[in-house]
C-alpha cells in the first residue's frame, strides 16, 4: 500500500456518486411528498384555514344579523346557500366565521401548551433528580383528572368566554405535552453525544439549545399536532355546553348546540357544523399521523 493512499483516507471511492446532502427536515419533507393521503388532508386544512381567514371578505352576510322572517330554512333558500339557523342567520357566513373561532380554539391552546409544557418537560428531563420528580408528579396530579371534566371544571370556574375556554384547554394539554417532552429529553440526555458536549465544556443552556432541542422538538411536534383535533373537539364541546364562546359569536360547537332545536325539522342544518368539526378534526388527525410516519424513519 502506498503512502499516498494513506492520506487519501476519504472513505468514499472517487467514482462513487454521493447522494445530495439533505438535512433531517428536508428528508421529512421529501418523504411527505410521496404520501398522497397526507397531502390531500393537508390541502383540506389549508382550504379551511384560508376560508376562515378570508371569512370577512367572502362571507355573503353578516354572521350575526338575523332575518327573523326566514328561520330554519333549508340550503338553497333564496340567497342563503346553506340555509339559515334558528334566528334566521346565514349558515354559510356563520360557518365561515365560526371556522375562525374553532380553528383558534384548536390551535392556540396547543401552541401555548407546547411552549409551557415543552419547556417544563425539557427542564425536568434534563435536570433529572428532584426537579424531575417535582415537575412530573405535579403534572401527574393534573393528568389524573379526565381531560374533558378538567376543561369543563376550569372554564366553569373561570367563567365563560373564548379566552377562558382557551386557557382551560391549555391547562388540560400541558401535562401530556410535558410528559412527551420529558421522556424524549431523558432519552436523549443519556446519549453519548450529550456526554461529549459536556466533556467539551458546554454549559447546560448551550447543550440544551444545541443538542437537546433539535432532537426533542420532533416527537413533541408530532404529539402536539395530534392534539389539535382534540382541542377543536374539546373547544366545540365547551361551546356546546355554553362554557366556551358566548353567543352571538359564531362557533361550530355553539352552532351545533343552538341548532339542536331544529334537529327534527331541518336535520341537515344541524349536521353542517357537525360535519365541519368532523372534517377539520379528522384532517388534523390524519396529517399528524402522516407527519409521524414521515418523521419516524431513522436515518
Amino acid at each position: 500500500m502506498s503512502v499516498a493512499s494513506l492520506s487519501d483516507l476519504s472513505a468514499a471511492p472517487p467514482t462513487e456518486k454521493l447522494p445530495p446532502v439533505r438535512g433531517y427536515w428536508a428528508s421529512v419533507g421529501n418523504r411527505l411528498r410521496y404520501d398522497y393521503l397526507t397531502i390531500f388532508f393537508l390541502s383540506v386544512i389549508a382550504i379551511i384555514v384560508v376560508l376562515a381567514i378570508l371569512a370577512p371578505l367572502i362571507a355573503p352576510f353578516d354572521p350575526t344579523k338575523s332575518h327573523m322572517a326566514y328561520r330554519l330554512k333549508p340550503p338553497g333558500f333564496r340567497n342563503f346557500m346553506l340555509g339559515t339557523d334558528e334566528l334566521g342567520r346565514d349558515m354559510l357566513s356563520r360557518l365561515l366565521w365560526g371556522g375562525r373561532t374553532s380553528l383558534l380554539m384548536g390551535i392556540f391552546p396547543v401552541l401555548l401548551a407546547t411552549l409551557v409544557g415543552g419547556s417544563l418537560g425539557v427542564a425536568a428531563g434534563f435536570m433529572g433528580g428532584r426537579t424531575n420528580t417535582f415537575i412530573m408528579r405535579t403534572m401527574d396530579v393534573v393528568f389524573a383528572f379526565p381531560s374533558v371534566l378538567l376543561a369543563v371544571a376550569i372554564s366553569g370556574t373561570l367563567g365563560g368566554g373564548a379566552k377562558n375556554g382557551m386557557l382551560a384547554l391549555t391547562l388540560v394539554f400541558i401535562p401530556s405535552i410535558c410528559r412527551v417532552a420529558e421522556s424524549a429529553t431523558t432519552q436523549v440526555r443519556g446519549l453519548d453525544f450529550v456526554e461529549a458536549a459536556r466533556a467539551s465544556g458546554g454549559s447546560t443552556l448551550s447543550i440544551v439549545r444545541t443538542h437537546i432541542l433539535g432532537n426533542v422538538l420532533g416527537p413533541v411536534f408530532i404529539f402536539a399536532s395530534s392534539l389539535i383535533s382534540v382541542s377543536i373537539l374539546l373547544g366545540s364541546g365547551l361551546s356546546f355546553l355554553g362554557l366556551g364562546v358566548e353567543p352571538p359569536t359564531p362557533d361550530w360547537g355553539l352552532m351545533l348546540s343552538t341548532l339542536r332545536a331544529g334537529i327534527y325539522t331541518q336535520p341537515l342544518l344541524c349536521a353542517l357544523p357537525g360535519a365541519a368539526i368532523f372534517i377539520t378534526s379528522l384532517s388534523f388527525n390524519l396529517v399528524s399521523d402522516g407527519l409521524r410516519q414521515a418523521m419516524d424513519v431513522k436515518a
Binding site: G23, Y24, L191, D192, F193, A196, A197, S200, G201, G202, S203, S206, T210, H211, G214, N215, A299
Partner: peptide, 20 residues
Amino acid sequence: SSLNPRLPIRNTIAYGPVVH
C-alpha cells in the same frame, strides 16, 4: 449515539471551540 443526528458534522466539531 455519539454524534448528534440533527447537527451537521462540521457544527458538531465546532461546538467545543465555540463553547470555549
